[in-house]
């Protein structure tokens, strides 16, 4: 169990009309080699901003400001928030790589697939064009695209969405990074293709031992890929634990609410009445509710308790953390 990245009390704020709007509060976690951590949440939860913050891809200050520590562990510990942009640029792609939701916009339409993979390799490594080309063929083969050598000369628009995402993965893995950040990489894909990509990522992780930070809104995907899971709401971590524990016995009412809101395939056609939805919507980061950010939408809210800060991130045993003052009584009532 080797830690490769530690995020400590990461806070990110965006400047808007002269004020700083906090969008990520005190996020802390570690990534371990060969393991996958999932960040789950709805839009506005801060999950994507967290990942962009780690890559230092947010607009520079004063438009956005990141505080806290993001430590990349290697021979020496490097705090990504305190190094120069030039040094960060060398690490990006080399040690930490990222893939996005929409592979078409991430690929340059005027260059061939081969050019783009070779460029990714040669921008970080001083190797000959021929060597880089061999490596590119190897990578295309590795991400499960048949006839790899012939694919080098194709352009992004000639490929399907699933194929493009494979190419993005090939580029991301070109330099054998220790960390892969995947921001909703399967959301734009069809279910059968999503299954292929998840299988591919799992296989590649087993082969290379990289750590993965997987951002998604889909608990089904989480169950398939993640070892540990963090649920985010309104910029805060509200639940963190082993994936199995979080999915089987969610302690935070928001997590269980989200899971109940999704219809299940197993009960399809049984006319089970209404889904249990979560009323209201995600609060504006400029005016978060007092106390627990979720309390105005929660069915277990007790006034005088839930609307009073602070709401600690408590350990419920076995490293299962939850940000809810009432998790114990909710659990007891359920049993």
């Amino acid at each position: 169990m080797t830690r490769v990245l530690t995020v400590e009390n990461l806070n990110i704020g965006f400047r808007s009309e002269g004020r700083e709007l906090p969008v990520v509060h005190d996020v802390s976690f570690t990534l371990e080699a060969g393991k996958t951590l999932a960040l789950v949440g709805e839009s506005g939860s801060g999950k994507s901003v967290t990942s962009l913050g780690i890559m230092r891809l947010l607009p520079p200050p004063p438009q956005s400001r990141a505080r806290g520590k993001i430590i990349l562990h290697s021979d020496e510990d490097i705090d990504l928030l305190s190094i120069s942009e030039a040094r960060m640029r060398r690490l990006r792609g080399d040690r930490i790589a990222m893939i996005f939701q929409e592979p078409l916009t991430s690929l340059n339409p005027v260059y061939t697939i081969g050019d783009q993979i070779i460029e990714a390799i040669r921008s970080h490594r001083a190797i000959s064009a021929r060597k880089a080309r061999e490596r590119a063929v190897e990578l295309i083969d590795q991400v499960g695209i048949p006839d790899a050598a012939a694919r080098l000369t194709t352009y992004p628009h000639e490929l399907s969405g699933g194929m493009r995402q494979r190419i993005m993965i090939a580029i991301a893995l070109a330099l054998e990074p220790e960390i892969l950040i995947a921001d909703e990489p399967t959301t734009a894909l069809d279910v059968t293709v999503q299954a292929q990509i998840i299988d591919l990522l799992r296989r590649l992780q087993a082969e290379t031992g990289m750590a993965m930070l997987f951002i998604t809104h889909d608990f089904g995907v989480v169950a398939d890929i993640a070892d540990r899971t963090i649920v985010m709401y309104a910029g805060q971590m509200v639940e963190h634990g082993q994936t199995e524990a979080v999915l089987e016995t969610p302690l935070m009412p928001y997590t269980s609410g989200l899971m109940r809101a999704v219809p299940e395939l197993e009960t399809a056609g049984l006319n089970q009445g209404e889904l249990q939805s979560i009323e209201g919507f995600v609060p504006n980061p400029a005016s978060l509710p007092n106390g627990c950010a979720f309390h105005p939408r929660c069915t277990h809210t007790l006034s005088g308790i839930c609307d009073v800060p602070p709401v600690p991130f408590e350990d419920a045993g076995n490293g299962h953390l939850v940000r809810c003052k009432r998790w114990q009584s909710i659990l007891e009532n359920a049993e």
């Binding site: 399907s160 699933g162 194929m163 069809d190 279910v191 059968t192 293709v193 999503q194 299954a195 292929q196 998840i198 299988d199 889909d218 608990f219 089904g220 995907v221 989480v222 169950a223 398939d224 199995e244 999915l247 089987e248 899971m259 999704v262 299940e264 395939l265 197993e266």
Partner: peptide, 25 residues
Amino acid sequence: EALLSAAPSPKSANRRKRIVLKGDI
């Protein structure tokens, strides 16, 4: 069958045998 098996489910009890189709449409 392939569509049904590819749809991910959060509950491990409901985990189905995954049929991963080859290729694209």
